[in-house]
Design a protein around this nucleic acid. Sequence first.
DNA 1: TCCCTCGCATTACATAAAGTTATGGATTGC
DNA 2: GCAATCCATAACTTTATGTAATGCGAGGGA
Lengths: 295, 295
Amino acid sequence: MNFRRRIPSLTALMTLEAVLRHRSFTAAAAELGVTQAAVSRQIATLEEELGLPMFVRKHRAIEPTAECLTLGTTLAQSFANIADTIEAVRSSQQNVVTIGATVAFSSFWLLPRLAEFRRENAGVQIRVVSQDARIDLDAGDIDIAIRYGRPPFADAKVVASQEDFVVPVCSPDYLHRRPSGNLSETDEFIETDVHDRSWLSWPQWAEETGRALRIRPHLRFNHYTEAIAAARAGQGIALGWRLLVQTFLDDGTLVALEVAEMPTEDRYYVLLPARTRRKPAAEHAANWLANALTR
Amino acid sequence: MNFRRRIPSLTALMTLEAVLRHRSFTAAAAELGVTQAAVSRQIATLEEELGLPMFVRKHRAIEPTAECLTLGTTLAQSFANIADTIEAVRSSQQNVVTIGATVAFSSFWLLPRLAEFRRENAGVQIRVVSQDARIDLDAGDIDIAIRYGRPPFADAKVVASQEDFVVPVCSPDYLHRRPSGNLSETDEFIETDVHDRSWLSWPQWAEETGRALRIRPHLRFNHYTEAIAAARAGQGIALGWRLLVQTFLDDGTLVALEVAEMPTEDRYYVLLPARTRRKPAAEHAANWLANALTR
DNA sequence: TCCCTCGCATTACATAAAGTTATGGATTGC
DNA sequence: GCAATCCATAACTTTATGTAATGCGAGGGA
């Protein structure tokens, strides 16, 4: 193979193709956005490299040699194929918007709203990448990230942010079974093990709300979705991030155990990549998400 | 069209094709003759330009994305077409040797010897460009020039040179019809109008040979081939460049009117281009011509 | 016949693109 | 735990490409 060794300067070849099509150095220069001198230089260099004239210079005119016609035909076809493929690859991705979020956010907030998004944006495909590890916006494969945390985010441009509140939640059944009144150490607590600074565990909640409770969770999960599923199944009390569990509070599968909700220090952010090319469709979707998140 | 606007860096695309084929930045770098860092840079730049990842980076391995596979297929095909065409254009010309000479030299000396050349060099095609205007070796379309004149030749490398002699010649029929003895003003002279310093006209010949003859040509031609044809047709006396008219002297269609031949100051030179690429076949042919000319 | 125009050629210089060296990070196997 | 391997990155260097200025020559028009 080794095309690098077999092919002269591709810049010169692209110049040749343009000159041949225009039958003019000056006109080709205009299309290429360079000076006539640059074109003259590239053609001369190519002729020297090939050891063959490409054009017969006449007064105010050039005539391509037979070799130039042969080569130019191949070049035109090849460059067209390359350009077409590049455009196809680009456009095939233009209307696919990849959204990255945590598993919990994806499950509880994003997926229930995708139907509405799709109704309002018929031409856009959504791809969801859910992972609890941090979404890397610099890699270029994620168009929008929804991140829970605190700025600054070096890899991101912030479109919108939304605070949240934390409140203990449980199922109506569990509420009925437990003694009425404040939370106590006899309650059954469900904990999510997340090793992230922005996460709130039961002991931290107790401390930050000034409770003299020694909470020992009897169920522990590594995904928040599982913790909430357990709570809805009546197996105890979980900490509820209001934005995430709102649908369950609305449909009655969960109830809040207290009226006062503790505001979180961290917020949800709708983020676009700071450093990679952004698709128009992604910017549009980000705006839609921002509106939905903040209303 | 405007491929320059539609296509990103062709260097990067060529790098992509190599990386994809090798499935390795490091191996591609070796083939391309650059460092791994250069390859890493080119791929990163291309990914940013396209707004799409081309490779998923794994440990000690990379995996091409679907887009990379699509694009790489087109690139491999296109670069192969370009490379093949370039090689075809180059090789189709490697064994075509273009010889430039004056019309007279071409007609009288070169053409009669081409059959012999072809017999000894079956694989070489000869193309003859005959013109009385000076042959431009810098243009790159002439492989060998045979020039009559004096050095230095800035555009040429001298392979061989051969002096010549000038002698008045006429047909046997004209010789029979004229009075015997020296040339006189009653003879009919055939002149060639060539406005070139190296050319010898009848008055110059008379002066340089010390003849007290006032020669008024009764026939004038602008091509020497015509002057010689007229002489052979019995229409008078022309100046004969021995090398050119030797075949006619040999076959008896022309006779020399004097025994003494005047040496010319100018010589025939077999010349190769000084500044453009020389084909091996052209150098070989030049050596053959040099031998033929000087023997 | 002379002058002007037009379009390619060339040169010295500038800069953008490409490449290098040195170093870092991360994973895997021994 | 350490070494090897392979991609990433940054500061610096080199090369390829482009520019501005100028020249040349042929052809057309006055």
